[in-house]
Design a protein around this nucleic acid. Structure first.
Length: 603
RNA sequence: CGGGGCGUAGCGCAGCCGGGAAGCGCACCUGCCUUGGGAGCAGGGGGUCGGAGGUUCAAAUCCUCUCGCCCCGACCA
């Protein structure tokens, strides 16, 4: 329209006024936005209290601001990204047949007392009282509420299966919140709960969620892995964590280089390859090792490698005392040991108990003539002539051998996996990498339904407990993880699917009427086509605009400059590849639209 | 909860040791100038120095208490 006016150019201010009114009328879901009207406070300098890249960039790009420890305000740009992630989650949850509902964030204590978690949950549960001094808490998770709903509203097998989800603000009073949106106290979470008639159905629901999660994280542009995880206190038969690989992650993932085995370090098994040493058994000897307690001290004192030593750790459990043997260069995996022994309480023995069991001070325990059950790691099985404590002060034994000098009551896989260990599923080797847990799915079984009396009547009229599953996604954390994986020195590189805007139009000089007219024209055309576009109409120098453009990471940048405009061209720059293409001004909207849909095709 | 550190303008910091007029850079406002990678010049606004108490003629500075925040660890998933 503007172009038809030929050489006549209205004063820019008037034109803006006129075209903003027009834009308002054609605005589709607020597709377009003018930078001058957006609250988008970018920071040139690095915020002092940000540690990880995503946190720094989210602050610098004006997405979030901190209100208190672990509590953040999301500014418009941050909200737009959040909403993109939410939308992907909703689409995939709905596609998987789940239904959205919304539960309260303030929960009555009664429900929590009923499940027993009011006392178990600990300080992480934010407890509050109302004016009548009644106990409430701010929901950190919603198993109790959903189970309560289920027991009231679900009574027949005809209503099953059903999967209900919500996207709700949670609060967990973390001991130490850190890394911005990565580990906040208040955070947005998608949590879903499935109810089935039996185990089989529950496993089907679990599988559906597994697939939905895979689609969700793929669409968010994340490189991730689903790994076997420990069910921890939530319980249940199995669970997977969706881990985004990132060096700043707080979780450790063990995966096989050859096959698709992957597990959380807490759960990771080690292949039971027993390397039988072909050494001849030598004569058992006791050697004085005054003051040498640690593996490091003993091995350097005796001049042997840690692989030749066996650590004896005395452990106290609710079922009694056990001595655990692991190779000198290995560490006990407490979660695996706990699961193996079927116990929940586990702690290193104190000096008194050690003295009682070994008749020696800490640091000199050994398996020979030890007055406790001995459970040994598989790696110990093939060892010959190893070093252990002597169960006497300041002494160790060398040339210790299994069966000849002592007997292990049991062998088990109880150590932490480490880089290069054999894979439990194939002949490959294990790798260790850091990651961020963005999603976690659990098959719960009947733990909550039985505790809270949530049952249904089957076709034969028999009363059965609902079989449950629960499935979480940290929305803010997913967003942070995406930034953690997609950035460079200049700023964020948003994947198209979760970008706050698809295109940024950057007029190089906003005092140049021709440039501004072209930019406005492009803006209006794109908005009309439903493209989410940000027009940088600020009266800033080009350098400032370019820096901000890179920082906020809009996938496509349309630069309107004097030189190219003279030949009727504009420049499109792809943020991720830095690729630059020149297109004709009037073809730009079409090219842009095609580029966007090409980027989104897997959604 | 243990250890360490920091609270001074919107942001980043100096000043504190050795008490004596609250500063610097960026941002912000006005004007000029400039317009393809965070320009330049001139002028300007903005502070209960986290809070309370104490010492002193005088406290951002010294002392006591307190609150907040960050980092490491433990904890949690």
């Amino acid at each position: 329209m503007v172009r038809q006016r030929g050489t006549f150019a209205p004063p820019y201010q008037e034109m803006v006024k006129w075209s903003s009114q027009w834009a308002e009328s054609v605005r589709i879901e607020r597709a377009g936005m003018r930078y001058s009207q957006l609250l988008l406070p970018t920071l040139k300098e690095e915020p002092a209290d940000a540690e990880v890249v995503s946190h720094k960039l989210m602050l610098r790009a004006g997405m979030i601001r901190k209100l208190a420890a672990g509590i953040y305000t999301f500014l418009p740009l941050g909200v737009r990204v959040m909403q993109k992630v939410e939308r992907i989650i909703r689409e995939e949850m709905n596609r998987a047949g789940a239904q959205e509902l919304l539960m309260p964030c303030v929960l009555p204590a009664d429900l929590w007392k009923e499940s027993g978690r009011w006392d178990q949950y600990g300080r992480e549960l934010l407890r509050i009282k109302d004016r009548h001094e009644r106990d409430y808490c701010f929901g950190p998770t919603h198993e109790e509420v959903i189970t309560d709903l289920a027991r009231r509203e679900i009574s027949s097998y005809r209503q099953l299966p059903v999967n209900l989800y919500q996207i709700q603000t949670k609060f967990r009073d973390e001991v130490r919140p850190r890394f911005g949106a990565m580990r906040a106290r208040e955070f947005l979470m998608k949590d879903a709960y499935s109810f089935d008639v039996d185990e089989e159905g529950a496993e089907r629901s679990y599988r559906q969620m597994y697939d939905a999660y895979t689609r969700i994280f793929r669409r968010c542009g994340l490189q991730f892995r689903a790994v076997e995880a420990d069910t921890g206190l939530i319980g249940g038969s199995f669970s997977h964590e969706f881990m985004v690989l990132a060096d700043t992650g707080e979780d450790v993932t063990v995966s096989c280089a050859e096959c698709d085995y992957a597990a959380n370090l807490e759960r990771a098994e080690v292949g039971r390859v027993v390397e039988e040493s072909d050494e001849e058994m030598r004569e058992l000897e006791m050697i004085e090792t005054p003051g040498q307690r640690t593996v490091e001290e003993v091995t350097s004192f005796l001049g042997v490698l840690p692989e030749k030593l066996v650590k004896t750790i005395v452990i106290e459990t609710e079922k009694g005392v056990v001595a655990v043997l692991v190779r000198g260069d290995h560490e006990i995996n407490e979660a695996k040991l706990r699961r193996h022994l079927g116990i929940t309480q586990l702690q290193m023995a104190g000096d008194e108990l050690i003295a009682e069991v070994t008749h020696a001070p800490r640091g000199f325990a050994g398996p020979v003539k030890l007055e406790a059950d001995i459970i040994a790691d598989f790696a110990v099985k093939g060892m010959k002539n190893f070093v252990t404590g002597a169960n006497e002060p300041d002494a160790h034994m060398i040339n210790v051998n299994l069966d000849r000098d002592f007997e292990a009551d049991e062998f088990a896989d109880i150590r932490l996996a480490k880089e290069g260990d054999p894979c439990p599923r194939c002949p490959g080797k294990l790798q260790v990498s850091k990651g961020v847990e963005v999603g976690h799915i659990f098959k719960l079984g009947t733990k909550y339904s039985e505790a809270m009396g949530a049952s249904y009547l089957d076709a034969e009229g028999g009363e059965k407990p609902l079989v449950m599953g629960c499935y979480g996604i940290g929305v803010g954390r997913t967003m942070a993880a995406a930034i953690e994986q997609n950035h460079d020195d200049d700023g964020i590189i948003f994947p198209m699917s979760i970008a706050p805007f698809s295109v940024l139009i950057l007029p190089v000089n906003n005092k140049d009427t021709r440039i501004m007219r072209a930019a406005e024209d492009l803006y209006l055309t794109l908005v009309k086509n439903g493209v989410e576009v940000l027009l940088d109409d600020r009266d800033e120098r080009p350098g400032v605009k370019f820096k901000d453009a890179d920082l906020i990471g809009i996938p496509l940048r349309l630069t309107v400059g004097e030189k190219n405009l003279k030949t009727g061209m504009v420049e499109i720059k792809v943020r991720s590849s830095a690729e630059v293409i020149l297109v004709k001004l009037d073809e730009a909207p079409e090219v842009i639209t095609k580029m966007i849909s090409a980027e989104l095709k897997d959604g």
